Amino acid sequence: MALPDHDSSVGHSFGLEFDGVVIRQISEVTGLKMEQDVIELKQNTADGKYLIKKLPGRPKAGEVTLTRGLTGDNSFEKWIKDSRFGKMAQVRKGGAIIVFDYEGNAIKRYNLVNAWPKSLEIGSLKAGDTSVLTEKIVITYEQMDVA
């Protein structure tokens, strides 16, 4: 059930979906945005005044960074390995970042078009450290739609 218009959702319950598989163990998502170029139209009005109009331009592609705890799941490693070997027909995927309500129902989907992994980073390995090991994947996409 979607939240009423006057309620805000809580940003702690979200997941990543690619190829119909939902990964809910994502701990952080950053950089998720829709952006477009701005075109400046400079002109003179009929009475001779200088005027600048700002018009919407082409949409920009984006990048999103996802962080999760390091597990035995090697899907991120396989995905980036395929991109490094140029298997782009297999690597480019459609997917979504999904925000869930407190009952686990999807309330918002950020659909990513032609997404593929740019980089994978493993957290610091430090002797004596008791923090959780993480892996960060940066996914680049050509377009984002909100559903």
Rank of each mutant, 00 (worst) to 15 (best):
I137G: 04
L112H: 01
D129C: 07
D82K: 13
G62Q: 09
K126G: 06
L16H: 00
V64C: 06
L112K: 00
V138I: 13
S27T: 10
V91S: 10
G11E: 03
I97P: 07
A96V: 06
Q43E: 14
E135D: 04
E17Y: 03
G31E: 07
M34N: 12
D82Q: 15
Y102C: 05
T67I: 12
V91R: 05
V22L: 06
L55W: 01
G69V: 13
M88S: 15
V132Y: 10
R68L: 03
G48P: 14
R92W: 14
K87Y: 12
I52D: 00
M88K: 11
N74P: 05
L16F: 11
V138P: 01
V113M: 09
S75I: 05
A96L: 03
R24L: 14
T134D: 08
L70T: 02
L125G: 09
D73K: 04
R24C: 11
G95T: 06
V22A: 03
R92P: 01
W79R: 12
I98D: 00
R109E: 00
F14C: 02
D73P: 00
L112D: 01
T71E: 01
L125F: 14
I80W: 03
F100V: 00
I23W: 11
I98G: 02
G95C: 04
G62E: 01
D37K: 13
K49D: 13
V113W: 07
K93P: 02
R84G: 08
G20Q: 06
G15H: 02
T71M: 03
A106K: 04
K54R: 13
G69E: 10
E28G: 08
K118C: 03
E35A: 15
G72M: 12
A61F: 13
I107W: 01
A127K: 10
E35G: 07
G104I: 00
D101K: 07
F85L: 06
K60H: 07
R68I: 03
R109N: 04
E135M: 09
H12I: 11
L16I: 02
Q25G: 15
N44M: 15
E40Q: 10
S27R: 09
E40P: 08
R58G: 07
D47M: 12
P56R: 14
A89K: 12
V21K: 01
E103H: 06
R84I: 08
H12A: 13
V138D: 02
L66P: 03
T134R: 01
W116T: 01
K87C: 14
D129Q: 13
K81F: 13
E35Q: 11
I39L: 15
E121P: 05
G72N: 14
R58N: 14
T130N: 14
K53S: 12
G48Y: 12
S119E: 15
S124H: 13
V29T: 02
K49A: 11
G95E: 00
I122Y: 03
R58F: 13
K126Y: 09
G94A: 13
L70P: 01
D129N: 14
R109A: 00
G31I: 14
Q25D: 09
S83V: 02
E135G: 04
Q43Y: 15
P117K: 15
G57A: 04
I122L: 10
N44Y: 15
P59R: 10
S83G: 10
L51C: 07
Y110H: 08
R68H: 05
V29L: 04
L112V: 02
K87N: 14
Y50A: 10
P56D: 11
G86N: 09
G31P: 08
R84H: 13
L120W: 04
M34Y: 07
P117A: 03
